[in-house]
Each structure stands twice: as structure tokens, then as C-alpha cells.
């Protein structure tokens, strides 16, 4: 139905929509958006299931255990569940639901998968060290003018730009 080459929403309008969602989050709950925190919850509850004794003794995992609710029943986990379903609805409306391995034609599918895993691992690791990812630290942090938000944003995008040249073959 939509014209070819114009299948996504105008980025500025999509940004406006995202901004309003973010603002609603601040107005209703006093906090911004997040994503990596939910993944951490998955890891924490996984480790805790394997060995709850071990998780309780770890300085890292224990921080997220022992609360009133299990680490899987937290704000961020529910929010990310919403992201999953919201993304699905949007994809269904715009006819983009399709299993697809997206990659540059110059690299093999296997290489793309390895790059995705390595990139994911780095992002996961970095998000724990830096207390939040692009959404939790950078986007939400910038909206409340937090210094941490701006520093994290510049570190993420600055590094990605600096390294772009070395990984150009994977993308263009």
C-alpha cells in the first residue's frame, strides 16, 4: 500500500512519537526507558536458577536479588516485553514480518552471525559497566539533562564513528 522507498515512517515524526512515549514514561513513573536492564534480569534469574547460593554470594548478582519481587517481575522486564509486542504490531501493520538475516551481500551469513554475537556481547558487557545502554543511559539521560547521559551518548557514538572505517566491509 505504501510507496516503495518510503515504507518507514518519517524519522522526525517517529522521533516525535518516541519522545512523547519517553515523556509519558517520565510523567507517569518518574523514570525513562531502558532495555539492557531487562537482559540483565534474564541473566540474573538464570544464574540464580542454576545456583541460587552462588548468585547470592556474588557482589554483582546479589544486588538484583532478594527484593520483594523476582528479577523477572520488574519494571524493565515488563517494558521490554512491551517493546517486543509493540515492535511486532508495528511490523505486522507495515507488512515487515519476515524471518530474515540482514547483512551486506559482501559477507557470508555465518560471518554476520558471529559479528552479531560478538557485537551483542560487547554491548551487553559495556552496558553493565556503563550502567545502561543507548535507551536507559543515553536517551533517557539526555532528556533529563544528566551529565552521565551526554557522556555515555558521546562515548557510544564517538567510538562507533571512530571504528566505522575498520568495519566498513561488513556494512557497505
Amino acid at each position: 500500500m505504501e510507496m516503495k522507498g518510503n515504507k518507514y515512517m518519517n524519522p522526525y515524526l517517529a522521533g516525535l512519537m518516541l519522545g512523547i512515549v519517553l515523556l509519558a514514561s517520565f510523567y507517569l513513573t518518574g523514570r525513562g526507558l531502558g532495555a539492557s536492564g531487562a537482559m540483565k534480569s534474564v541473566v540474573v534469574s538464570g544464574v540464580s536458577t542454576v545456583s541460587s547460593e552462588y548468585a547470592k554470594n556474588s557482589h554483582f548478582y546479589s544486588k538484583y536479588l532478594g527484593g520483594e519481587y523476582s528479577p523477572m517481575k520488574t519494571w524493565l522486564v515488563l517494558e521490554v516485553l512491551g517493546v517486543l509486542i509493540g515492535g511486532f504490531i508495528s511490523g505486522a501493520i507495515s507488512g515487515r514480518l519476515k524471518f530474515k538475516l540482514e547483512k551486506s551481500p559482501k559477507i557470508t551469513g555465518r560471518k554476520r552471525i558471529w559479528l552479531a554475537i560478538i557485537g551483542g556481547a560487547l554491548f551487553g558487557f559495556g552496558s553493565q559497566l556503563g550502567r545502561g545502554c543507548t535507551s536507559g543511559a543515553a536517551l533517557s539521560g539526555m532528556a533529563v539533562m544528566s551529565l552521565a547521559g551526554y557522556v555515555t551518548m558521546m562515548a557510544i557514538f564517538g567510538t562507533a564513528f571512530a571504528l566505522a572505517y575498520f568495519f566498513r566491509k561488513n556494512w557497505i
Binding site: G30, R31, G37, W75, C133, A137
Partner: peptide
């Protein structure tokens, strides 16, 4: 009377932690 520690406003958690 001695000063007593102040009660704090309820704070919200946030970010990705």
C-alpha cells in the same frame, strides 16, 4: 532538642540498573 535525621522523599529507580 537535638537535630534529628531528616526523612527523605520517596525516590524512584531508573536507568538500566
Amino acid at each position: 532538642k537535638k537535630p534529628v535525621p531528616r526523612r527523605k522523599k520517596k525516590m524512584v529507580a531508573g536507568g538500566c540498573s
